[in-house]
């Protein structure tokens, strides 16, 4: 870790100006990811701009019936916010499936979106990595790749985005609000994270210096039929091997609206309109679920250690949709508390 300076601006415009004026600076939220990256010498900002004093920690109702989550609200405060629990329980579940209480108490919503991949090679300077040092090669391809992508990967990078929260945000079609000296803009969640392509060093579509100020949740919260199912190598404090955010609207047995997003399988939360279309208008049966699962996994490609995720993801989708349909099952706390049983 190099030495660095620190300043905690109190206004958003001051923060973004400072960030632009100091190209070697970085924003710091809870620091749960950035500090680790600095300790491993993966990130070496010489100036940290603390966001704690910005007025961005609020969670408030929006006039259109949606909910605004401040970028600096902690993951814990967000998950346990009464409006989130009541109207967006899928988000509550997804956040609580991630990390540990200690981490969630520190981690911020903005930081969660911006957290970097957990690819072993990315964190280890002894090995080449295109994401860390473009052009050096991808060690995970042909290396150890249990936690890597099966969808949307490139020959440059097969990393996954590790967030749980983002999988739910993708399913809920949140909107990311950002600020820069040029002003404010909104980015749809689907367009926020990107696939690695030939620029694996870029995780998302933020422009240099842009600050995330809030996440806007649309009115529709799928609070009746939803599930976040996370499969991992231990019951807590482990990233998803595969995770599924499933949200349905049902009219009797018929699915009238559906959202389906996968975590742990791609460089971004993985959604596909065709898969959701296969659900809408259909009866909520295993046959329907399997068709949607197959569609969402279409084109999936495994590597030496992660090919099992293709089948596992399909099964997890079917299970999640089933649980979302039979909500009494979901409300049996065991069903997701111990999603590996």
């Amino acid at each position: 870790m190099n030495s660095f300076t620190y300043s905690p601006p109190t206004a958003v415009d001051a923060a973004v100006r400072e960030r632009i004026n100091r190209p070697d600076s970085a924003y710091i939220g809870g620091g749960t990811n950035l500090i680790d990256l600095m300790k491993e010498n993966v990130a070496h900002p010489t100036h940290l701009i603390g966001l704690k004093k910005l007025p961005l920690a609020e969670i408030e109702n929006l006039p259109d019936g949606g909910l605004r989550l401040g970028a600096m609200a902690t993951n814990a405060d967000t998950a346990w916010h009464p409006e989130v629990e009541k109207r967006y329980p899928l988000l509550n579940q997804a956040i609580l499936a991630g990390a540990t209480p200690q981490l969630r108490n520190m981690a911020t919503n903005g930081g969660n979106l911006m957290q970097r991949t957990r690819c072993y090679y990315f964190y280890d300077l002894a090995t080449p990595c295109n994401k860390r040092e473009p052009g050096t090669g991808c060690s995970a391809i042909g290396g150890y790749n249990r936690i890597h992508a099966i969808l949307g990967a490139s020959e440059q990078c097969i990393a996954t985005h590790p967030s749980d929260m983002c999988v739910a945000l993708a399913a809920l079609e949140a909107v990311v609000r950002v600020s820069s000296p040029q002003g404010e803009r909104s980015i749809s969640f689907a367009n926020f994270h990107r696939l690695p392509g030939d620029r694996p060093e870029l995780d998302n579509t933020l422009r240099p210096g842009e600050l995330i100020t809030a996440l806007d949740l649309p009115k529709k919260g799928f609070a009746k039929n939803f599930t976040y199912l996370k499969l991992r190598d231990r019951s807590s404090y482990a990233f998803a091997v595969v995770s599924v955010a499933a949200a349905l609207e049902l009219d009797g047995d018929i699915i009238t609206d559906a959202r389906l997003a996968l975590g742990g399988v791609a460089h971004k939360p993985w959604r596909k309109a065709e898969a959701e279309q296969l659900l809408i208008g259909k009866p909520a049966t295993l046959v329907t679920f399997r068709q949607a699962a197959a569609e969402l996994l279409a084109g999936a490609e495994g590597h030496a250690h992660n090919a099992f995720k293709i089948e596992l993801a399909k099964r997890a989708i079917v299970r999640a949709l089933k649980q979302a349909t039979e909500m009494d099952y979901v409300l049996d706390t065991n069903a997701f508390q111990n999603s590996n049983p």
């Binding site: 957990r118 072993y120 280890d124 002894a126 190598d233 231990r234 807590s236 482990a238 990233f239 508390q337």
Partner: peptide, 21 residues
Amino acid sequence: DHGFGRFMNHNLAEYHIPVMA
């Protein structure tokens, strides 16, 4: 990773031991 001859999951996030749950 035998290509590198290096242990890769050299941290407690990726070297899993049981947690209370």
